[in-house]
């Protein structure tokens, strides 16, 4: 797996260098995103706050295929850290490749996607450690962009787990989305089934299920404060070690996530920029010490399109 990951990463990086040298033509479309996330833990016995920053680079060759790379740096501060020995710092390197097919019989675009992550952290906890994650996905979007169906699989190998044996987490996540109101609204439902091969390393849970619903609405151009869109995202059920390939986020350093909700706003200051701001609250439970707490956060991102 390590060899496969290194191969994929080197192919992706080499290709990105080649692409950035020739993107000036009208066939390459490049997006760069910088984002930051900060939050605090309320009622947590152990955790205090966290900070995260990422950069993404996305390159599309027309509507045929796409490469993306992301780097994330995350720091979680603990309450009783003292000299800082128990704080956790993590780096995440992500590569994504997408290839598109157009199927007239299904009247839609088929996306095949492969995402690979490499996480490196200094966590002393058994549930964390460094990880390699591979995630294939198959997605369908109708030509009218009013229906999407996809199925995603995630294979996470926490090979450096302190308990000796590898912790393997598998995630199955099908989703369905609908556009309505002349595609001014988008409603998406996503289900998660996450299984662990070693309960002792996943807080006693062998499998967890959860469901997420997201509603996004695009506003008229004269909307207040120039807001282009807003979205609400809510999660019910439980999940741990979840992977979100839309935001390249791996929840490997968190406890069992329970009900969560977020509210986001989007702006488009000119046709080449996008800004997003999100405020959210997530409920977690540490079953080892029986501590339920919330994580409140604020997220902002800026994207430039070329």
């Amino acid at each position: 797996m390590e060899i496969l990951f290194r191969f994929l990463l080197s192919v992706l990086i080499t290709t990105s260098i080649l692409i950035t040298n020739v993107y000036a033509g009208d066939r390459w479309y490049v997006d760069a995103t910088a984002d930051g996330k900060a939050g605090r833990y309320s009622d947590s016995v152990l955790r205090k706050d966290f900070y995260s920053a990422s950069v993404w680079l996305n390159m599309d060759y027309l509507d045929n295929y796409s490469f993306a790379f992301a780097y994330n740096n995350l720091k979680i501060n603990y309450k009783d850290a003292g000299s800082g020995a128990f704080n956790i710092a993590q780096e995440a390197f992500t590569g994504r490749f997408q290839y598109y097919f157009y199927n007239d019989a299904l009247a839609g675009k088929i996306t095949t996607q492969l995402v690979a992550y490499r996480l490196i952290n200094d966590s002393p906890a058994a549930m964390a450690g460094s990880a390699t994650i591979i995630s294939p996905k198959l997605a369908y979007m109708h030509y009218d962009k009013d229906l999407s169906v996809d199925i995603e699989y995630v294979w996470s190998d926490y090979a450096s787990s302190n308990l000796g044996s590898n912790l393997i987490i598998q995630q199955f996540a099908p989703s369905i989305g609908f556009g309505f109101n002349q595609n001014s609204d988008w409603l998406e439902l996503k289900a998660y089934l996450i299984t662990s091969n070693d309960k002792s390393q996943s807080q006693g849970e062998g499998s967890l299920t959860s469901a997420r619903v997201k509603w996004k609405h695009w506003l008229d151009p004269e909307a207040i404060f120039g807001v282009n869109s807003f979205f609400i995202d809510a999660l019910a059920g439980q999940r741990i070690f979840a992977v979100d390939n839309e935001t390249y986020t791996v929840f490997n350093l968190e406890d069992i996530q329970q009900e969560s909700v977020l509210l986001g706003f989007g702006w488009r200051p000119g046709e080449d920029f996008d800004i997003s701001a999100v405020a959210g609250i997530e409920k977690y439970k540490n079953k080892i010490i029986d501590n339920t707490y919330n994580r409140e956060y604020f997220y902002i991102s800026l994207t430039k399109h070329w």
């Binding site: 066939r27 479309y29 027309l62 509507d63 157009y102 030509y143």
Partner: peptide, 13 residues
């Protein structure tokens, strides 16, 4: 018809 607007740009240009 397939919503591949980048291709439309290429050929119209």
């Amino acid at each position: 018809a397939q919503g591949r607007w980048r291709r439309v740009k290429v050929y119209t240009r």
